[in-house]
Structure formats: C-alpha cells, structure tokens
Simulated assay, not measured.
Amino acid sequence: MSQVQKLWNTTSAIPVVGERLFSFAFSQKAPYFATIRPRFTVVEPDHVELVIPKRRRVHNHIGTVHAIALCNGLEAAMGALAEVSIPRTRRWIPKGMDIAYTAKATSDITCIAETDPEQWTSDDPDLHVRVRGVREDGVVVIEGVIRLWVTEKP
C-alpha cells in the first residue's frame, strides 16, 4: 500500500475533518495544488475524486472557475490516482495533457481521474488517465486525458 493510500485511510476515517486533513497534507507534498484548495472525497486505486470550491481566487474574468484551475484539479486527482494505483516496482511521470473545455464552470467542480487496473501492468509505458470535471448539476465542464510515462524502477 502506498504512502498516499495509507494517509487517506488514516485521515478519511476521522469524522468531519478527515478529508480536509488529507487534502491539506497532499497539498503540502505538492504546494502548487494548495492554490485551488482541493478537497479529496474518493481516493482508491484507479479512481480519485476531489472538489475545487468555486471562490473568487480561482475565478476568471467572467466569474467562473478558471480553465487552468480546472487543469490543476485534474492533475491533482491524477497524481493521487497514480500514487495509489502504480505497482511498487514502477514509477511514473506526466508527459502531457489533452483537454477540452465543454461548458462554463459555474459551481464547485468535482474533478475525477480514472484508469483500468491492467493499464498499470501493461508493457506499454504510455498510460492514459481519463479525467473530467463536473459541475454540481452534473454537466461536464472539462474532459480529456493526462498522459503518463510508466517504467520499471531502476
């Protein structure tokens, strides 16, 4: 079990504040993610969800959640997913991101990252993580893939 999974299991068991404790700790590991104040709600192999609260600090000029804040949320979800999904004998690094902005982000946004278990053990080092951001009314506002390079540890 990865350190990220252990941290999630420990903190999420704490009533009321557990998810926030995990989210704060995760953001300390990669401080840039703290700018969007992610609140992780699901952390499990091959599936991670977090919420980006709609607040002025992440707004664009029209008062919706900024496109790059959305990308940061997707990347945070992907990073947690990679850490809890990858076999101990492998390592990962992001290669790129292909994203489509499909609607205005007018509410809190749930960022979702997903993979299939067999992707992590494939001989193909090019792994695609499916990502999307969903408004509170269920409308997808951003979707695409984040490409990872997964190789054996030396």
Rank of each mutant, 00 (worst) to 15 (best):
K6E: 11
P15N: 08
R55K: 15
F26E: 09
Q5V: 01
K29G: 08
I146F: 03
K95H: 01
G63A: 10
A105P: 02
L74V: 11
H59L: 13
A69T: 02
E49S: 02
G138A: 08
S27N: 04
V51E: 03
L81Q: 07
S12P: 07
K29D: 06
W8T: 07
V42E: 13
V139F: 01
R132W: 04
I86L: 15
I62F: 04
V139E: 15
I14S: 06
I99M: 14
V17M: 14
W8K: 07
V58C: 02
H59R: 10
L70I: 15
A80D: 10
R37W: 00
D46A: 04
I99H: 03
D108W: 08
V145S: 03
T64C: 11
N72K: 11
K29H: 09
I99Y: 00
D124G: 05
A82F: 06
E75C: 06
C71R: 00
R39D: 04
V48L: 02
D108Y: 05
A30N: 08
P45K: 10
T151C: 04
A25N: 07
A100Y: 05
E49W: 01
R55G: 00
D98N: 13
D116V: 14
N72Q: 14
T10I: 12
H59W: 15
V4S: 09
C71N: 05
Q119V: 04
A105C: 09
S107I: 05
V150F: 02
V131A: 06
S23P: 12
R147S: 11
E143A: 12
A82T: 07
V139L: 12
Q28H: 10
F33H: 12
V43D: 03
D126F: 06
I112E: 11
A69D: 01
W8M: 09
V129R: 04
